[in-house]
Structures are given as C-alpha cells and as structure tokens.
C-alpha cells in the first residue's frame, strides 16, 4: 500500500480544496539525505465535507495538513482552493488568502498566548484584518465565545491558564472561526484531552460545522475519533495514502492490509476478546529517510509478495467509492480474480 495515484479524486469543479501530487522533503543536516515526509499525496475535500486523515506518528499526516496551509509550501505538487492555485503565491497574496484557512492544534494551552486575555486573543484576527468597528468586533467575539460554550462576560478578562484544557480548546475553536474561514484544519485537536472532555469537543466541532457550514480536514491517530467526525477517511502510512473511502465502508470492510491491522490493534471497551485476534503488526514504521522500495508498507505487511518490492501500487477503486493502493487488497469487486491472497 502506500502508493500514489489520483483515481480517488473527484471532479475539480466540485471540490473546495484539491491537492495533487504533494511532495514534502526535509534535508537531514548536510548529509545529502532527505526525510521523505510526504511523497506524492493527492486529496480533495468537497464544500461542507469533513475529511479525516488518519495514521501513526511519522506517517506525514501533520506535514500534509501544513503543506495544504502553505506553512511551509510543499516541495512540489499543486494545491487549489476554490479553483485558485495557491502554491507559489507571493507572500502578500498568500497573506490575503490566510483568513480563509484556519487551523486548530493539538495542545490547546500552548497555542494560546499565556500573557494575553481571552478577549484579546479571540478578537485579534478581527483587529488585524480591520473587520468592523470596535463595537461590532466586540459583539462578534461575544457571540462566537457563546457559540463555543464559553461565557464571554466571565472569560474575556481572564488569561488562558485560568481555563482547563477543554475550555482552552473551545477558545481556540472560537479564534479560528472569527474570520469565517472556508476550511478549518484540525491537527489532533482532541488527543491532549481527557476522554470525557474529548466528547465535548467532538460534539462542539460537529455543531460548529453545521452552524457555520465549515469544511474540515481532521487529522488524528485515533480511528474511532476519526470515524465519528468524518464524511470521508484517508489512511496514511509513511508519507503515502493507503486507502480512501467513506468511514462506514472503510471500517466495516477495510481493503488495505494496513487499515485492517490498525483497526485490529484497537483495544475495545465493548468486547473482551478482540485485541487478541486478527492481524497484529510486528515491528515499527521504517525510517522515512530511506523508505522501502515499491509499496512502503511491504516490510510489515502480512500479504507482501515479490511484486510489492518492485512496483509501487497505484490508487484504484475496489468497490464504489472505496479506493485502495495495494496489489493484493483484502477485497476487490473490480477484479474477478484472487482477492486477498495472490495467485
């Protein structure tokens, strides 16, 4: 798995954000080596859709999110927002575009300036972009804080340390919504939070999505969380996409051996036995400095064959709206032959 291709992309006319053949590489000191963080990833998001991007640490999911935001711009590939190509924009033009793309980070407390008050933090985007009069700005800050479940009269004069992690994440959501963005990129927004608070924030994001008509890219390592919030899920491994499809399809009938293994590794509070069965991955994710040839997952894949080390699999449709980059997918309606096990 872990291959290239664009078969899973939809009509460019209909998409809000479209990235094709993204590549991000970082040099390793002056050794001449490179970290292949994102290698030929293509994805698209329809207006109002939530795309969940899931993978282990080191799979390149955060780097992909940042490449879409052009911080930093990808090494190669194209990103279009609403039909406009945004890679290669000059810094001033890019700055003009920034209000349309906002981001929420993993650690809510460290992403708020500890020395400033909540009212200033949330209102700052409006002041920078000179949106409305002071009174209008103030009213919008109040309304947005209210919408995310923070009492504005009590909160505006306080500083971030006076709030819990969950409340700080609500404040971050409010700040991201101030400029009415077209797309919100959430990078592990709940993984630093307690399970009870996590559910509050997931529900909040769902509410905000309905209320403000948001389009979201939701990056997380927790499959159950991603399934809960997403309309479409993309699974990443070592800088490549493995599988793309609707959450219900992917989780019920994963086609990629890696997706299967990820699902099988989750200990479940609902069943007593499932962690001791199924596919268990051995070893760890290989170094992105020297990724395996062919399919990048082959070193850990239970169904790997000779072919996998020579030819990189390309994204193709195995059942309606389920795409997989694998030579030997677990199921494949589009080829009548040997499925799961190579002939």
């Amino acid at each position: 798995m872990a291959g290239s291709g664009t078969a899973h992309l939809r009509d460019p006319e209909s998409t809000l954000l479209r990235a094709e053949h993204l590549v991000v590489e970082f040099p390793v000191g002056n050794t001449g080596l490179k970290v292949h963080a994102v290698s030929d990833v293509s994805l698209d998001i329809l207006p109002g859709e939530t795309l969940g991007l899931v993978g282990e640490s080191g799979s390149g999911k955060s780097t992909t999110g940042r490449a879409l935001m052009q911080m930093p711009s990808p090494g190669s590939g194209s990103v279009t927002l609403d039909g406009q190509e945004i890679t290669g924009l000059k810094s001033n033009d890019l700055r003009e575009l920034r209000p349309q793309m906002q981001m929420i980070f993993q650690d809510p407390i460290s992403s708020l300036n500890p020395r400033r008050r909540v009212g200033e933090i949330v209102g700052e985007p409006l002041r920078i972009w000179k949106r409305g009069s002071a009174a209008e700005q103030d009213a919008l800050v109040d309304a947005t804080l209210e919408a995310v479940g923070i009492d504005p009269s009590a909160a505006k004069g306080r500083r971030p340390h006076e709030f819990s992690g969950g409340q700080c994440q609500r404040i971050c959501v409010a700040r991201a919504l101030m400029l009415d963005p077209k797309i919100l990129i959430c990078d592990e927004p709940v993984s630093a939070l307690d399970v009870s608070v996590q559910a509050q924030i997931l529900n909040l994001l769902q509410d905000m999505k309905e209320r403000y008509g948001l389009t979201m890219l939701f990056i997380a390592h927790d499959l159950a969380v991603v399934k809960n919030v997403s309309d479409r899920v993309a699974v990443m491994y070592l800088g490549k996409l493995c599988e793309v499809g609707s959450p219900d399809d992917i989780y019920a009938r994963p086609a990629h051996p890696y997706t299967r293994a990820l699902i099988d590794s989750i200990p479940s509070a609902d069943s007593e036995t499932n962690t001791h069965e199924g596919v268990r991955l051995t070893g760890e994710i290989p170094s992105p400095v020297a990724p395996p040839s062919g399919c990048r997952f082959r070193t850990r894949c239970p169904s790997a064959q000779e072919l996998c080390s020579q030819v990189e699999p390309v994204m193709r449709e195995v059942s309606p709206n389920q795409f997989v980059a694998c030579h030997f997918p677990l199921h494949d309606e589009n080829s009548g032959t040997a499925v799961g096990s190579p002939a």
């Binding site: 559910a199 509050q200 769902q206 919030v229 309309d231 699902i263 989750i266 609902d270």
Partner: peptide, 16 residues
C-alpha cells in the same frame, strides 16, 4: 463518552 468503531459516523457522543 468514548467514540466506538461500531457506531456509525457522526453519532452524537454523550459527553460528560
């Protein structure tokens, strides 16, 4: 309050 894999996506969670 924990999202579960066997729940359909977009299930509203019972947050505490």
């Amino acid at each position: 309050s924990i999202p579960r894999l066997d729940m359909p996506s977009h299930t509203r969670l019972d947050a505490i």
